[in-house]
Design a protein around this nucleic acid. Sequence first.
DNA 1: TGCCAGGGGTTCA
DNA 2: TGAACCCCTGGC
Length: 293
Amino acid sequence: MNYKYQNNKIIFKNNNDFNPEHVFECGQAFRWRKEDDESYTVVAFGRVINVSLDKDNVVIKNTSEEDFNSIWINYFDLNTDYNEIKNKLSDNGTLNKAMKFGYGIRILNQEKFETTISFIISANNQIPRIKKSIEILSENYGKFIENYNGVDYFSFPTPEDLAKISVEEIREVSRVGFRDKRISEVSNLISKKEFDLEVLKDYSSDNLKKELMTLPGIGPKVASCIMLFAYDRGETFPIDVWIKRVMEELYIGEETNIKLIGKYAEDIFGDLAGYAQQYLFYYGRENDIGKTK
DNA sequence: TGCCAGGGGTTCA
DNA sequence: TGAACCCCTGGC
């Protein structure tokens, strides 16, 4: 990994495979803020960073060389060659269009507990509301990190932090509605060590999914998202209403069921299905593919 | 102005 | 298999 470090900034070359807008607006993360200068300020791993493009370079501000090496290389998946992934997925058709459109997407390696709770909140919900609920939880129950560019930033609460709060308070404060109990129960199970998100990282993907789905609020789709965004399972293909519509519209040609879509994705995208999903999701949502049906 | 549908799914009958 | 679910925004 070639990079330059100066004045709390990391600078490295962008090989047409890193675009902060694509990375953060493709639906995998919720704790970012788009600044007036088009850069993205992001909270993760108890840090606040700002990511932007400067000509052919990616610039990460407000960080150290040590954090870059120990946190951000893995977080941004910088040791994975996305151009190689694109080449392998290349199909001279739909997916090529999607990969061209979202060329700078990278699949982040995010924190397990935060990802778990975030996607429990995402069920039958809308992105602005999801983001808001997560911000409220962080501001109220997380730790203050710092003020950056005039805004206070807080870490996502720990399982212990959330386990301490009553279900009613979670609901009332963070506006998560019927998801309140799910958040509370999962936080309690984890803080009491009755469920361990860390040991699951050595499980096979099948078993990992099964285990995650034993938690309240986690069904097939949420489990898949957690696997793809926090457990480095690039073969996982989460199927939500958007990707269902995109697959039906662009690949299958008729309305069908989730099971068949999963099988279809596995057949054509193989162990890179998760990457394909991100390109297709971003492309589909930004262009309203299938929405008029 | 006010009403009403619907949303990155999951759960419970 | 299908309805219900919190809350809130956008469309009429």
